[in-house]
Design a protein around this nucleic acid. Structure first.
Lengths: 213, 213, 213, 213
DNA sequence: TATGAATGAGTGTTCATTCAT
DNA sequence: GATGAATGAACACTCATTCAT
């Protein structure tokens, strides 16, 4: 839980370092114990600054929470879109292409940073439903749409059978993620990369049986 | 949020009623705002008793939380096993049988009580990982095993192709639940029964394409 | 500043004692340093209770302040009206009657409790203008009206010349209080009873020269 | 509350302007909310400078408060002495002379700047009793002495009856100020100039009945 | 058993003040 | 001389828990 580092510089002495340290510490603490349970004091301690410094920078706890979410949300969106974009498959090997994308998505999905990010969202769900909605429309939906777009391209090329691409995308995602997630106990346990590879393989198996040309 | 009633009998003034009222109020409040955020005071108020009475009965907040979880966990397990058991299919119509079980499971899954129960688990995740583990082994795994058992029976009968029943069960569940859940925004929105039926239908479609005989 | 005691019972053990001790301590601290500057912690310490006990009883700081004001305001009104009522003078000695009432009013006015009460009002002026207004209409104006009523009676009897009784009351009060107050430095210094007697005598002198029959 | 300007020159960017702007802002804020309640931050903002600049100039909050008081105290003393000095009455019309001086004093007394200044003193009473004492000896007493001196002159001339001039001054002041002040509710309400004129007239009436030749 | 009253430890937030640039 | 950034101490208020009745 100590390896999400945005930009801390160990020998801290600059100004910007403090802000980054604070965002960073906030991310970890919020993800760890949830919004309500995270004390500003503990975030300050983790960041190595005084409590008041946090207030100087962010105004209040809520604004800090939103700032943290925004900063990481943008990065996550970029990451995922990039991965989905690789599903262009000049090659004929659909299985390999799907397994590549699937595994990459799964790796991201279970990356500690992403796991924490999901926890952040869940942790703040009751208090900040608007943030949740914003993430869904700006991240989840756009990733799903990109995936559907790629799958529809594969359908047009005859590499997948004709079907509703949105449904296909949704089900690909479900087959990929849900069985793997069940094994992590809501993120309590880590998953090995072997497990991820096996999960991907099983998901692609079933997906191709259902949607293969 | 006021319709989960374990055993309140408003007019009665006996001892047991108080205990039930307290468990009941605790369930609602815990599910509503999470373990940490739920104040013993608010639970006492909701149950119509004095704060100290809660301590007389449960010792402390944590023990009350566990009590609530256990009481409802047992009930949930029974419900789900019953539903899965209906997948005996004397008839030849697999699709109808799967859709029946799928819809029933989905209805349970999005029943307010169950939604609250999942929230309870997530809310207490950080503080009570042992409870989470216990639910997984005692509820999730047993339901999955029962489902796999039914599917394996269908495979033996030749109504589904030969495959790993555990994987099939897991993927059936994933196809069923994940797309539907994505639409509820982590439980922020309700789902209509029409949506549930459509979700079930799509899940069974794809499942049968992949696992049909 | 430690002699305003409403009902403290030294060997404190009952329930009601705590409430009185709190009101009492609040009165002293508020009067001493003002509403904003008075810390709930210090009031709790002065009352010998825990901070939370104050919140259990009064809800919040503002409600405690209002409670304190109300409790003492009622008593003050009664006191003053009683004094003014003595101005019935069956005897012919107006000077003696006026000096008696004047001295009594002045004694009350510079009684530590009353001094503190005025400080309380001034201290809360900015934050609670409504309280100030309420005291003015319910206490100040009623005392002035009672005084005017007594003076008008004396005019009817021919013991004072005919004049506007309201103005006479107002000016009697001004002659009585203001010179004395100037010597206390906004209540910083105490006044001796000799000074009060002299102030009264001078005020009555001038008042009778202006309003004597 | 924004019309007390000591020397702000908006267009200028020199050094002295900043100091004046700070003193000016401090006066307004201190008078508005009191010493303890005034935040250095708000004064800095009102003055358009950085918080640290205030500390460069005044050392700390207390020294700034004293500086502000001293600057304005001198001006107030001058004003009042000048007014009292006009009570030389070459003319025979005492009533007119007294009404002139009385009205002028009353106007000053209820001038927003003076009202704020009195609030400043009251606000700082508990924290800075020495300042209060200094104002009393350097301003109040000197104004009273000047007034007594003028009245004694009138007595010598036979325009007022023989009496203790100090007492006469004190009572003139009381008759003048107290009834008017009662109507402002400790400065919460403004007074109209008509009210001031009426108050003056009543005060002079009574004063002349008591002290007229 | 049920309760009203009390409390110690904490929470988010503000503020006067300092320091490096 | 002027500033932006940082901080320690304090404050109003909350909460899980205990105790006497």
């Amino acid at each position: 839980m100590r390896d999400h580092v945005i930009g801390e510089v160990p020998g801290t002495r600059g100004r910007i370092d403090k802000r980054l340290a604070m965002l960073d510490a906030a991310f970890r603490i919020f993800a760890d114990v949830g919004y309500e349970q995270a004390s500003v004091e503990s975030i300050a301690a983790e960041a190595g600054v005084a409590k008041a410094t946090i207030y100087n920078h962010f105004g209040d706890k809520e604004r800090m929470f939103r700032e943290v979410l925004r900063a990481d949300g943008d990065r996550a969106l970029g990451d995922h879109l990039e991965i989905v974009a690789t599903l262009v498959t000049p090659s004929n090997n659909i299985r390999a292409a799907l397994e590549h994308v699937g595994l990459e998505l799964l790796i991201r999905y279970f990356d500690p940073t992403t796991v924490w990010y999901r926890r952040l969202l869940v942790a703040g769900r009751a208090t900040f439903p608007d943030v949740l909605e914003s993430v869904r429309t700006n991240v989840t939906e756009r990733v799903m749409a990109a995936l559907a777009d790629r799958l529809s391209e594969l359908m047009r090329r005859g590499q997948l059978r004709d079907a509703d691409p949105a449904v296909a995308a949704e089900q690909f995602w479900a087959l990929l993620v849900t069985p793997a997630e069940n094994r992590t106990q809501l993120g309590t346990r880590d998953v090995t990369s072997a497990e991820l590879r096996e999960s991907t393989s099983r998901a692609v198996d079933t997906f191709l049986r259902a949607f293969g040309a």
